[in-house]
């Protein structure tokens, strides 16, 4: 499994890739429709936060829900300006 020591040996880009590959199926299980976008949003957070989410389903779920709210607010703003 994914440990901080494994991550520290990889380049920053590779670290995000490794975290993304593990987060994506979990995000997809919670929110199937926007999982690519939500995973991308989560990957902008600190790696330590991402590792915590991988170990804590409640943390991941609440962050995914927050991402959905942020996306919906953003999309609502987009359409109101068109």
């Amino acid at each position: 499994d994914l440990k901080a020591t494994v991550l520290s040996a990889a380049s920053p880009g590779e670290q995000k890739e490794m975290l993304g590959e593990r987060l994506f199926p979990l995000v997809q299980a919670i929110q199937p429709t926007m999982s690519n976008k939500i995973t991308g949003m989560l990957l902008e957070l600190e790696n330590s936060e991402l590792l915590h989410m991988l170990e804590s389903p409640e943390s991941l779920r609440s962050m995914v829900e927050e991402a959905v709210e942020v996306l919906q607010a953003h999309q609502a703003m987009d359409t109101s300006y068109k």
Binding site: G20, E21, F24, T39, L45, Q75
Partner: peptide, 21 residues
């Protein structure tokens, strides 16, 4: 509460799904 999440973030496309080996 202000969110730290950025709605303009780049989408993540997993290698394992995009290119099955």
């Amino acid at each position: 509460r202000k969110s730290t999440l950025n709605p303009n973030a780049k989408e993540f496309n997993p290698r394992s799904y995009a290119q099955p080996k």
